[in-house]
């Protein structure tokens, strides 16, 4: 996946000279995950800039650069280091267009690794997408395959407004796929149905799509036909795709790595309750990380929901409606 991300950068920088990359170690080093590998050599130090070690500066300067006509793609090295940048993202990036009635705007992409599962040190494995989804004026995207990472990143860079681009760290090198470097973007408002099924809808995103698809295989062996939806764009949510699926299956399970309390799963459950309650055959279930700190890596796979938990939730949902 990480090569697909670098490839998308390369395509767009080649075709739009307003696109510049900034972040810590994005230049000669190509990013700590190599998501910007080779870009500085190809496009030069002006367009691929190593910034000082200061997240607020990365986000704040991206605001200034975007307001003056550039299309910055900023990298935050890990999601746990996002917090100093939030002031700039929430107070300015998300609302500069609004505040100036469209006079200035912020076509910025802020990329960052998302989630755990890579045996990283403390603060390197956060999944706090809900914080970002709560902010008006931001789009939040989380791809789950190399092809979707390529297409969605192109769309994010081309979008006229700020996009938070969350890259599942454990998929960076775990998933390999041939991706055509054709510059074709994917829509930023559409969820992807990864597997069709008539019994239960499972909505998930990012790295959890891997566990969820394995759970769906397991469920198939037990006679349960699960439909798996990759939300992909976490804000705004593609309500239509979810409701259409729940309309067919009558059952919903939401799976996410992030903590449960006020997680995005709650929003999805509320949307379905508001718009499709009468289609439901069973209560909505959530399979999520726990409401505790993401543990250091010896326990991280105990925190991240596994196939077993997803299978059990789907089975319980089926049992509830019999």
């Amino acid at each position: 996946m990480v090569e697909a991300i670098a490839m998308a950068h390369g395509w767009e920088m080649q075709h739009d000279e307003r696109v510049v990359v900034l972040g810590q170690d994005v230049g000669a080093n190509g990013g700590v995950f190599r998501a910007t590998l080779g870009l500085q050599q190809r496009f030069g130090g002006d367009r691929v800039q190593d910034t000082p070690l200061a997240e607020a500066a990365i986000a704040g300067m991206a605001v200034g650069m975007a307001a003056q006509g550039l299309r910055p793609v900023a990298e935050i090295q890990f999601m746990g280091f996002l917090y100093p940048a939030l002031d700039q993202i929430v107070n300015h990036m998300s609302r500069l267009r609004y505040r100036t009635r469209g006079r200035l705007s912020c076509p910025v992409v802020v990329r960052m690794p998302h989630g755990g599962g890579i045996h990283a040190p403390e603060h390197h494995s956060e999944s706090v997408e809900t914080m970002l989804c709560h902010v008006p004026g931001l789009r939040v995207v989380c791809p789950s395959s190399p092809a979707r990472a390529y297409g969605l990143l192109l769309a994010a860079i081309r979008d006229p407004d700020p996009v938070m681009f969350l890259e599942p760290a454990r998929l960076y090198r775990a998933v390999r796929q041939d991706v055509e470097d054709d510059g074709r973007a994917l829509p930023l408002d559409t969820a992807f149905t990864l597997r069709e099924g008539g019994d239960v809808t499972i909505v998930t995103w990012g790295a959890m799509t891997a566990e969820t698809l394995r759970a769906a295989d397991e469920l198939a062996g037990r006679g349960i036909d699960a439909e798996v939806i990759d939300l992909a764009t976490l804000s705004p949510i593609d309500t239509e795709t979810i409701l259409a699926s729940v309309g067919r299956t009558g059952r919903l399970v939401v799976v996410h790595e992030a903590a449960r309390n006020v997680g995005l799963g709650a929003e999805i459950a509320a949307l379905v309750a508001e718009h499709a309650l009468y289609d439901l055959l069973a209560p909505i279930r959530r399979v999520t990380g726990y409401d505790t700190v993401m543990p250091l890596y010896r326990l991280e796979m105990d925190y991240i929901p596994g196939v077993e938990r997803i299978v059990a939730a789907a089975e319980r949902t089926m049992a509830d409606s019999r």
């Binding site: 607020a56 500066a57 704040g60 300067m61 991206a62 200034g64 650069m65 550039l70 910055p72 300015h92």
Partner: peptide, 14 residues
């Protein structure tokens, strides 16, 4: 926060 916007704008000019 505005000091960083100015720095970013200056970066764009540069």
């Amino acid at each position: 926060t505005q000091t960083l916007h100015a720095a970013g704008a200056a970066m764009a000019f540069k």
